[in-house]
Design a protein around this nucleic acid. Sequence first.
RNA 1: CGGGGCGUGGCGCAGUCUGGUAGCGCACUGCAAUGGGGUUGCAGGGGUCGGAGGUUCGAAUCCUCUCGCCCCGACCA
Length: 571
Amino acid sequence: MKTSTFHLMTTRETPADAEIASHQLMLRSGMIRKLTAGIYTWTPLGWRVLKKVERIVREEMDRAGYLELLMPAVQPAELWKETGRWDDFGDQLLKINDRAGREYVFGPTHEEVITDLARTELRSYKQLPVTFYQIQTKFRDEIRPRFGVMRAREFLMKDAYSFHIDESCLDKTYREMYDVYSRIFTRAGLEFRAVRADSGAIGGSQSHEFHVLADSGEDQIAFSTGSDFAANVELAEAVAPAAGRPEPAEEMKQMDTPDATTIDDLVRQFDQEIEKTVKTLVVEASDEIDAAFIALLVRGDHVLNEFKAVKLPQVASPLRFAEEEEIREVMGAGPGSLGPVNCPVPCIVDRTVAKMADFSAGANIDGKHYFGINWGRDAEPGEVADLRNVVEGDASPDGQGEIQLARGVEVGHIFQLGTKYSESMNAVVLGEDGRSHTMPMGCYGIGVSRIMAAAIEQNHDEHGICWPEPLAPFQLALLPMNAKKSHRVREAAESLYRDLLEAGVEVLLDDRNIRPGVMFNDMELIGIPHRVVIGERGLDEGELEYRARTASENQRIPLEGAVEAILAKLG
RNA sequence: CGGGGCGUGGCGCAGUCUGGUAGCGCACUGCAAUGGGGUUGCAGGGGUCGGAGGUUCGAAUCCUCUCGCCCCGACCA
């Protein structure tokens, strides 16, 4: 390809509404153009990259024996009413009407369509297991599309669905898919973690999210330095400190703390270590216990995990924090002066709190705190539970290594659906036993367009994108210096260009009549991994200059046998 | 959905408070010089100011309505 005939449209200025690196660079390099909120055109340059991602996904899916098909983007409402998702899916579901007023949805996902196909096509256990997949445009009417194609409304997704005779058959495909996904992201050159996700309401189901590690990620994940443990922060278990509770060293004393209503105040005004403070949160209790409210205690620097709290049988669902008046009524003091000593409502303490000694907390008297509190002697811990978010440095729940936190971009999700859809849509096959079996299903998604954004988040510098080789729009940029004036350069470039094409290299020859600096900047912006410069100077020496996108130094390669030398660089 | 902000050539912005008939940078076109990291000079083309209505002799500017876009927000003892 030559730049003179390839529509290359880079801009120097960053569009005002692009917040994160990938969005800015995709716009500046001219890979996408926004049509309207959350909806983008893929330009020839961007489309080349997207196709690379697509190809990796497709090759690995095919290799695993999964079957590609293509389902309609527009689907009849009846199917969605059948599973109840016409109402349940929420406002993200784009509903449309045809000329006769019939209702349709633009598919945000395809469980209904594939299950409809399966119930008519699949009759016997002998046809199972089977996995279908497609790579297709989806539409989800996001509340707040942002970050370009990272959270777009229209996006390209690979979705796969598997059908099984029983759970163990599903489990086998699920595990296999886990490996396929790992291969896909590895091949794409991405640093990622497979994260155990919430199994949700569907009992016994398994679910993993695949996250590309990037600071701009919308999800925070916790992973171990010593094992492959990884989980969403909301779900990661916070284990108790290994060490036992220290013996009391201080007497408990009541202190006047009129101006301390937050942990921060307490730490600052009384020179307390934050690790020696406890905060008390009052939430509504469930019917399980004989009290209207219940107190949850976490260490001053820890954060209550609401997912964990609401799972406790004593806590009302949904979680509701007590209002200030309610707190005064039951506790006898306002928020900011609460603690476990003489606590009038039941307490549940976090595992870490249970192992604390000589700590401070509110006295349940306005303007007063107790310092030097010890469990057993001054207050009863009551029930101990995991109440908090994990923090860096916590022991990994599997006992191997420490917890580290990172932000991630969710690029894949695999899920054991069970019979949720097959049951409501009556997708059954005859088993070996001659009876009908409702097919357990799995579903597996990959955000194809999102991978592209995630890859840029992970691979860029101040000059632009540094594509992982397998995703780059071109492998090599061929840059002739001052070709307009120098026919030697022009001819050498043309001839090398033809030879490289012949050798199967995806090469972009910059034959625009522009300054070298512009060429360099453009090629770096769009992130071509390798570049070769041809100039009068080099030709005099019988040499070309080579440089990798991420390198800072040029290398010389002899003109003689240049194609072979370049091929060796491309790896 | 709630709060805030913004819509002026393709992009980034100024002009709006204090109405007088639209400007800058980048990009684009032509010519010339330059020719190894976004070079320079000269000459050009392109917008009626998101839309509708109103006030006024006169509206990008004031008023009303409307559409679109962007940002923030669901850990508080």
